[in-house]
């Protein structure tokens, strides 16, 4: 397996929509498996679905607002900040992926060392440890990805709101300065 040692170059296009959809689906599916063991009546899945829908709705609103912002104010600073955002997002995604790969390598190494155990109880303990480690790694991967999406979505909404405020202030200043 080859491992990357430097982050990928910033991408120019914006393939976030497809990625966000995939990641949202993942955050829905993995917990569904876990939800099978949650007692009936627990309201967690309902709350999760509501939050996932909220992110999806916010992403859609962000997309529309971005188009409006770019059509009204396609300034170099806005475009530059959008590019910086994409690059930062990809860097963090790359870091999550690296952590996943490193975790998988550790588990594989652990599996290879199982043969050095010499009692049944120790072998069983080691096998179950590997199962637990796989679960922990999956949980970390999914929650890190969900956190990145959630933070990006909220941070981006905030950024848009600031830009819209600046745009209105500039428009008002122009109107005041007009004869």
């Amino acid at each position: 397996m080859t491992s990357q040692t430097t982050p990928p170059e910033p991408i120019v296009a914006l393939p976030l929509a497809a990625f966000v959809q995939t990641a949202l689906t993942a955050t829905e599916r993995v917990p569904e498996t876990a939800a099978a063991v949650v007692p009936a009546g627990a309201e967690v899945p309902l709350r999760r679905t509501a939050l996932v829908n909220a992110i999806a709705a916010r992403s859609a609103t962000n997309a529309v607002a971005t188009v409006e912002l770019l059509s009204a104010r396609p300034t170099p600073d806005v475009i530059g900040e959008l590019s910086a955002m994409q690059a930062a997002f990809v860097r963090q995604l790359w870091k999550i992926d690296q952590d996943w790969r490193a975790g998988m390598m550790r588990i594989v190494e652990g599996a290879l060392s199982l043969r050095s155990a010499n009692t049944l109880s120790k072998i069983m303990e080691q096998e179950l440890n590997l199962v637990g480690q796989c679960g922990d790694l999956t949980a970390t991967y999914v929650t890190s990805t969900a956190a990145l999406i959630e933070n990006t979505s909220v941070g981006y909404s905030f950024w848009l709101s600031q830009k819209v405020k600046e745009m209105h202030a500039a428009t008002a200043a122009e109107a005041q300065g007009a004869p």
Partner: peptide, 30 residues
């Protein structure tokens, strides 16, 4: 409390604001 629009419920919006804006914004402009 930088951004109340982050969620329907205030407590959720402030928690998200703390994480996404108050701690680890993607870029300085955020």
């Amino acid at each position: 409390e930088s951004y109340r629009g982050g969620a329907l419920l205030a407590a959720d919006a402030f928690t998200l604001g703390a994480l996404a804006i108050g701690m680890n914004p993607l870029i300085p402009a955020m």
